[in-house]
Amino acid sequence: MERTECLLIEDLRAGDMTALAVIVEKHKRHVYRLAFQITKNHEDANDVMQDTFLKVYESIHSFRKESAFETWLYRIVVNQAINLVKRRERRREAPLSGTTETQIRSELKRASNFRNNPHLSVERKELQRHVTQAVNSLPIKHRMVVILHEFEGLTHPKIASILNCSEGTVRSRLHYARKKLRERLKSYVELTNLSP
C-alpha cells in the first residue's frame, strides 16, 4: 500500500473530510463505472456510489490493511450494487432512471460522443454498440468478472477476493463469459486482424 494512501486512511479515521474528498476524487470514476456496469442505470449507480463512500467513511475503522484499499473499496461497491440489483429483482421494481432527465442527458452525452467524433466510422460505432450490448447482456456473475478483469485490469486473486470466491471460480467464469461473448459477437469474431 502506498504511503500517501496509508496517510489518507489514517486521516480519514481521525474524521478528516479532506481525506475523504481526496479518496472520492481518486476513485469516483472507477466506482461509478463499476456500479453502472452492474446496475445498468445512472440513478442506481449514483445510489451505490453514495452508499459506498458513506460506508467507507463509517467503516474505515474496520479496514485492517490486510488487502489493498482498492480491493476493499471494490468489494464494497460490488456488494452494494448486487444487493441493490437483487432488491430490485425481488420487488420487480423498474429502475428509477428509465425516464429521468439525468438518464436522458447521460444517454445523449454517450450518443454525442459517437456522433461528434469524426474518426469513428459507422461500422466502428456499430461495433461499439454491439460489444457494449453483448457485455451488458451477460449474467451478473460473468459480467462482473469480465468488467473487473478486462476493464479494471485486476488480477485473478484480487477479483477472487472482491467477489469472495476462489481463483478457480474466477477463471471458470471468465472462460464461460468469453465463450458467451464469442457467440454473441460471432460475426465480428470471425473477422481476422482486428485492431483496437
Binding site: T102, N113, E150, R178, P196
Partner: peptide, 17 residues
C-alpha cells in the same frame, strides 16, 4: 478467444453526466 478479447476494447465505458 483472442479476437473476442480484442473486441472488448471497443466497449464504451459509462461516463457520468
Amino acid at each position: 478467444l483472442r479476437n473476442t478479447k480484442a473486441l472488448l476494447h471497443y466497449y464504451v465505458p459509462p461516463t457520468p453526466p
